[in-house]
Design a protein around this nucleic acid. Sequence first.
DNA 1: TTGATATTCAACTAATATGTTGATAATATC
DNA 2: GATATTATCAACATATTAGTTGAATATCAA
Lengths: 145, 145
Amino acid sequence: MSTAHAIEPAAGNEAAHAEELLSRVFFALSDPLRRSILERLREQPSLVSELAAPFDVSIQAVSRHIQVLVRAGLVRQSRTGRISTCSLDVGPMFDAAVWINRYSHYWQTQFDTLAHSLEKIARRPEKTETGKSSVNRTRSGRKKP
Amino acid sequence: MSTAHAIEPAAGNEAAHAEELLSRVFFALSDPLRRSILERLREQPSLVSELAAPFDVSIQAVSRHIQVLVRAGLVRQSRTGRISTCSLDVGPMFDAAVWINRYSHYWQTQFDTLAHSLEKIARRPEKTETGKSSVNRTRSGRKKP
DNA sequence: TTGATATTCAACTAATATGTTGATAATATC
DNA sequence: GATATTATCAACATATTAGTTGAATATCAA
């Protein structure tokens, strides 16, 4: 997590605050366990213990994952007594979608480029095909002891 | 960054590989400097030194940010001699958009256009080279302490 | 050849992330 | 009141991130 994820008052700077929130949203989405939590909350509001049940980690760990989601604005918690009900808030996810959508023009561009190259290939079949990006780097990860 | 960012051989597990790539894409997008790099690449392919220029960090730091983007599949580097030209690959970003779009029905009533455009493009056949633009633009980055 | 340029690698440091276990607070339940 | 349940907090260990500086690699240019 970069320094941008740190919560600062962002005194009066709304653009910086939006950037900051966007960073937190994308970071929150970068973990598969957190994405699974969101998937579950997409269906129904749930307790922390219910959200933690499917995973092989402690409920404390899940609680902190939920806190990450809360800080990103993706989850709201309403605590009544012991239990804390978590519910989805897709507002920040929409902001993320808007950011990504600014690249949608290039999806169309890629589509057009492909169509164009296909047309060219149809006329001149000896031309080579386009390369597909493949990511297969290895990075070390932590394992449960 | 969670354990999910670690790559295991993923022997034959295509779903796990897709999850893993999604984690890396969202993580790559969670840093404002990396997002700024993508913004720049949205306009034109650029050298590492050109991408590093607007930021008050060392070129080595930017080089590693680019590596994060490359491992997420968002940036391709073609090195010719000394220089390494970075270009955008929006394919993985599209995958991220598709994931987010599954939450769109929550906001679809208000923001119908985005979901519609995403869904329209959702049936693209393949990834190809991105288009070019000649607009130059700089954005502010983080400051040195 | 010599030197400047472009980029990456290596080693180090500081901060952050994520997991654990144990303690604590608040509230149901007996 | 005594006890179990729900959730969070605290402290700790370890891994990862992200920055730095210095060295290495490769190429271009004079």
